[in-house]
C-alpha cells in the first residue's frame, strides 16, 4: 500500500492502481473535512439555529 512495503514496485500497475485509490481517498477525505470545517464556521457565525430554519 505504501512505497516502503517491500513488495512495492514502481511500475505502471502500481501507479494506476494506487493513483486511483489515493485520488478517491483524497476526495473523500477533503470533502468530509470541508463539510466539517464549514459546519463549524457556520455554527460560529450563528447559522442553523431554529430561527433560520
Amino acid at each position: 500500500m505504501f512505497p516502503f512495503s517491500f513488495e512495492w514496485i514502481w511500475d505502471a500497475g502500481h501507479m494506476v492502481f494506487h493513483g486511483g485509490l489515493w485520488y478517491a481517498l483524497n476526495i473523500i477525505g477533503i470533502g468530509i473535512t470541508y463539510c466539517i470545517i464549514k459546519a463549524a464556521v457556520d455554527t460560529i457565525k450563528g447559522k442553523g439555529s431554529h430561527d433560520h430554519h
Binding site: 478517491a24 476526495i27 473523500i28 470533502g31 470541508y34 463539510c35 466539517i36 464549514k38 459546519a39 463549524a40 457556520d42 455554527t43 450563528g46 447559522k47 442553523g48 439555529s49 430554519h53
Partner: peptide, 24 residues
C-alpha cells in the same frame, strides 16, 4: 446547530461523494 449545518453542508456536497461512489 453544528449538526444541522453539517447535515446541510453534506447535502450540498453530496454530488461529489455520489460521483466518487459511482467511480468506486
Amino acid at each position: 446547530p453544528f449538526f444541522h449545518n453539517l447535515s446541510h453542508n453534506m447535502h450540498e456536497t453530496m454530488a461529489v461523494f455520489a460521483a466518487t461512489g459511482a467511480f468506486l
